[in-house]
Design a protein around this nucleic acid. Structure first.
Length: 203
DNA sequence: TCTATGATCCCCT
DNA sequence: GGGGATCATAGAT
C-alpha cells in the first residue's frame, strides 16, 4: 500500500483521473477508527465548462471555494440538506476540477461502518451511493478542504487495478438539469460490482 | 419490484 | 421561493 503521489492529483484531465481512481483504496482515520474501502464508482466534474459542476461558469462561493484549490484536497458538501458527498479536487490551483466518489467496496473497519450507518448486517447498501459511502467512512463537511496527504483521509494504491473490460463509462446520475452535458460519459463503474449504485446492469 | 415522498441546507432568482 | 451530484421507507403493482 502506497499513498498516491501529489502529482497524481495535478493531472489536467479530470475524466482520466476519475477512471484511474477505480480500484484505488480510500482510507480514513476519523474518530479514532480506521476504515478502508476500494473505489468502484466515480464521476468527473469538469470545472467551469461543465453545466453539472457547482463551479460552472467560474462560480465561487464559500462552499465551492475549495474546488479552486490545488489538486489533492477533499471537497465535501451537503446535498439535499442531509447527505455529505465526498469529492477529490484535481488539477492546478484555480481550475475547479473534482471527482465524486460514488461507491466503495468495504475492505476493513466494517464494524465501524455498520455502526455509522445504523445497520447490523453487511449488505450491498452499506457503501452504495455517494451519501452512503461518505457516511460509512465518517466523512462530513467539516473535512472539506483538508489535504489527502494528511492522516484523516487518504487514497492508496495497493497494486490492484481493474482491466478495461471490467470498467464501464456511462452518463452521470441526477444531473438532468445540465442539458447536453448530462449526456457526457463521465461516470465510471466496475461492471457487476454489487456496491455500484443505480439499477443493476443486465447486459 | 417499482414509484412516490419526506427530510431540510446551500445557493440562485 | 424553489431546486438540487440523495437515501430510506411506505404503499402500489
Amino acid at each position: 500500500m502506497k499513498k498516491l503521489s501529489p502529482a497524481f492529483y495535478l493531472q489536467s484531465d479530470v475524466v482520466a483521473v476519475a477512471r484511474q481512481l477505480l480500484g484505488k483504496v480510500l482510507v480514513t482515520n476519523i474518530g479514532g477508527e480506521i476504515t478502508k474501502g476500494r473505489i468502484v464508482e466515480t464521476e468527473a466534474y469538469n470545472g467551469v465548462i461543465d453545466k453539472a459542476s457547482h463551479a460552472f461558469g467560474g462560480r465561487r462561493t464559500n462552499r465551492t471555494e475549495i474546488m479552486f484549490s490545488k489538486g489533492g484536497v477533499a471537497y465535501v458538501y451537503l446535498c439535499y440538506g442531509m447527505h455529505h458527498l465526498f469529492n477529490i479536487v484535481t488539477n492546478k490551483k484555480d481550475i475547479p476540477h473534482a471527482v465524486l466518489i460514488r461507491a466503495l467496496e468495504p475492505m476493513s473497519g466494517i464494524e465501524t461502518m455498520l455502526e455509522r450507518r445504523s445497520k447490523t448486517t453487511l449488505d450491498s447498501t452499506l457503501t452504495k451511493g455517494p451519501g452512503s459511502a461518505a457516511k460509512a467512512m465518517g466523512i462530513s463537511t467539516e473535512h472539506s478542504g483538508i489535504s489527502l496527504s494528511a492522516a484523516a483521509i487518504a487514497v492508496y494504491d495497493d497494486g490492484f487495478a481493474y482491466s478495461a473490460s471490467e470498467v464501464l463509462a456511462t452518463p452521470r446520475i441526477g444531473v438532468d438539469y445540465a442539458g447536453e452535458d448530462a449526456w457526457l460519459p463521465y461516470r465510471f463503474l466496475v461492471k457487476g460490482n454489487v456496491y455500484v449504485s443505480g439499477k443493476k446492469v443486465t447486459s
